[in-house]
Structures are given as structure tokens and as C-alpha cells.
């Protein structure tokens, strides 16, 4: 309405940079610095086999981080992704090993189980107005218990399902380009990332993720059925966790019912390092992917340098605090 201040149309690049991506740029720069640093420190680090090992190590945490990113952008949190992943793996074991159904049904079971669990969490949060932290803490314990009950606390092996371990460990790329045997697990990570990023930035569901995290009351007053969308977002996150369940089961060729606890914190750490705001409204899949990579590179690099594993954990913790502090500093400056 004023003639005095006009927004000059900016280039797409300028807008992306302006849209609060500094933290992502920072995270990416840190990743590059880490890679350069470790490769100078150890000649073994940059070998193709080691790079592939890093990517393989990223795949499960990366997929979980993508799932949590969706929930965190809405202003929520999901503590149940670790044990939910295990629960999905156990259900897959039931379908494939106990019931002896074909591979396809196992894949479907994992994804649907995840979506269902997510929808439950979403319902607790949206309809019953339980804070996400509590609702998903409850889910975390429920799913851990159910995994143990259903499996009788014993691992379920997938020896009778041909091709199951190929889901994570095979390499479709390696068959085409033998010099680049990137495992399928990594391929799946990147596909999940691309699809989720598309959903987040190009669909109604994604739009409401940001809108809910930005100002939920305002979305509600605009006449949007916020409860329904919240449940849908948690369900989508659950489905992605189901994929992580498949990946880890495939890698171990078994569903390990006691596994899972602690994965949720690794995933949240990756999301935070990647610049997604825990208060909601801002965040990106690419950032979380970079965050997960940074964590894997650190662990791997420190191991190559023969640093004790205990210290690797200390370094990861320090990185999280530094990453968030850098983000706070930047935001204080812009305000």
C-alpha cells in the first residue's frame, strides 16, 4: 500500500538463501571441513570403501531423522521413532518368517505398521491434547514392550526370505557401475529424502507442517482442520520410520527386539545439527540429511584416527551444542 517500500522480485537463489538457510549452509560447510580435515589426518579416510561405509552408517539414522524433521517442524517432537522402528521390524518378521508370506507383504507391513503407530501418536497429540513429548514418550515404551512381547524377546531371523538382506546390503547401482557399489540402503535414504522434501515443500501436507509450527492458533482460525492434518503428519513420519525398520532388519538380517532405544536421540541430534528449529516452523530435509552425515563422518573419522569410542560420544554432544548456539547467534543478529 505504500509507494515507498517495494519488494524487488528476487532470484530464486537469493530467496532460498534469504529464507533462513544459513544454518544449513553452516552445517554443509562443517561437513566439508570435517571431510577435508579427516582426509588430511588419515590417508585411509578418503578411500571409496570408507566413504561407502559412512553412507551405509548414515542410512538408518538419516531416514529416522527425516521422519522426526516432519514432526519437529510442526512444533512437536517424536521420541518414539527408535522403538517404533524396532516394532516395525518385528512385525515384518512376523509377516515374513512366522507367516511365511512373500517379501512384498513384509515391506507393506513395515510401512503400514509405522503409519498406524504414527497416527496413534498424532491422535494422542491432536485429539487428546497430550503434549507431544509425553505422548511419544508413552508410545516409545508401549512399542518397546510390544516388540518384546510379540517376539518373545528373541530375535526373528529372515533366513527363509530370499532377497530380504538385499534391501539394505545389495547394490543396484553397483550392478550398473561396478566401480561404485553404493548399497541399496543408501539409495533408499536418498529416495526417501527426495520424496519427503517434495512433500514438505510442494504439497498441502508440507505446507501445514510449517504453518502449524509457525502459528497453530492462526491456522485453526483460518478454518483448517488442524487435528486431521497433525494426525496425517505423524502418520507420514511413522511410515518413514517403517522404512527405517526395514533397513535395519535387512542389514542385521533379523529383527532385534531389544534394539531401538537411543536411536530417537541420535535422530533428533541430526535434525538439530541440520538447522531445524525445535520451536517449529523452520527446517529442511536436506539439513537433517547433512546433520546425519556429519554425525556419521565424525564417528567414522574419529574411529579411523583410533580415538576411543567414548570420546566420539563426547564430541557429538559438543557439536550439537555448538550447532544450536551458532543458530541462536545468527537469529539474534537478524532480529
Amino acid at each position: 500500500m505504500t509507494a515507498t517500500t517495494t519488494d524487488a522480485p528476487k532470484s530464486t537463489l537469493a530467496r532460498i538463501v534469504a529464507a533462513g538457510t544459513h544454518q544449513r549452509v553452516l552445517a554443509f560447510a562443517s561437513l566439508v571441513i570435517l571431510l577435508i580435515g579427516f582426509s588430511i589426518a588419515s590417508p585411509n579416510f578418503m578411500q571409496t570403501s570408507n566413504m561407502i561405509a559412512i553412507l551405509q552408517a548414515t542410512s538408518v539414522n538419516g531416514v529416522l531423522a527425516i521422519a522426526v524433521t516432519l514432526v519437529i517442524i510442526t512444533g512437536g517432537i517424536d521420541l518414539s521413532v527408535g522403538t517404533m522402528m524396532t516394532f516395525c521390524a518385528v512385525i515384518t518378521g512376523v509377516v515374513l518368517t512366522y507367516a511365511g508370506l512373500p517379501l512384498m507383504f513384509g515391506v507393506l507391513a513395515a510401512v503400514l505398521t509405522g503409519a498406524l503407530c504414527g497416527a496413534c501418536s498424532g491422535t494422542f497429540v491432536a485429539k487428546m491434547a497430550i503434549p507431544p513429548f509425553i505422548a511419544t514418550l508413552g508410545m516409545m515404551l508401549i512399542l518397546k514392550g510390544l516388540s518384546l512381547v510379540i517376539s518373545g524377546t528373541r530375535p526373528i531371523y529372515f533366513n527363509d526370505t530370499p532377497g530380504f538382506s538385499e534391501i539394505s546390503r545389495g547394490s543396484l547401482i553397483g550392478e550398473v557401475i561396478p566401480s561404485l557399489p553404493i548399497p541399496n540402503g543408501v539409495l533408499i535414504l536418498f529416495i526417501v529424502a527426495a520424496v519427503t522434501a517434495y512433500i514438505l515443500n510442494r504439497t498441502v501436507l508440507g505446507r501445514y507442517c510449517f504453518a502449524l509450527g509457525s502459528n497453530e492458533e492462526s491456522v485453526r482460525l483460518s478454518g483448517v482442520n488442524t487435528d486431521r492434518w497433525k494426525i496425517a503428519i505423524y502418520a507420514l513420519a511413522g511410515a518413514i520410520v517403517g522404512i527405517a525398520g526395514l533397513l535395519i532388519a535387512s542389514r542385521l538380517n533379523s529383527a532385534q527386539p531389544a534394539l531401538g532405544l537411543g536411536y530417537e536421540l541420535e535422530a533428533i541430534a541430526a535434525v538439530v545439527i541440520g538447522g531445524t528449529s525445535l520451536s517449529g516452523g523452520r527446517g529442511s530435509i536436506l539439513g537433517s540429511l547433512i546433520g546425519a552425515l556429519i554425525m556419521a563422518v565424525l564417528t567414522n573419522g574419529l574411529r579411523v584416527l583410533s580415538v576411543a569410542q567414548e570420546w566420539q560420544t563426547v564430541v557429538t554432544g559438543a557439536i550439537i551444542i555448538l550447532a544450536v548456539y551458532a543458530d541462536m547467534m545468527r537469529r539474534n543478529k537478524t532480529n
Binding site: 533462513g20 504453518a211 491456522v219
Partner: peptide, 21 residues
């Protein structure tokens, strides 16, 4: 509304047509 009730992290257009994209 008296108090601004916009979603700050979204663009102007995304705010204007929220719910009717």
C-alpha cells in the same frame, strides 16, 4: 484480528490463502 495472527515462517501468499491453497 487485533493481534496479528500470521504464520511468520510462511510467505505472504501462503498466509493469505492458508486453508484454500
Amino acid at each position: 484480528h487485533q493481534e496479528l495472527s500470521l504464520m511468520n515462517d510462511l510467505t505472504a501468499a501462503q498466509n493469505v490463502l492458508i486453508g484454500r491453497e
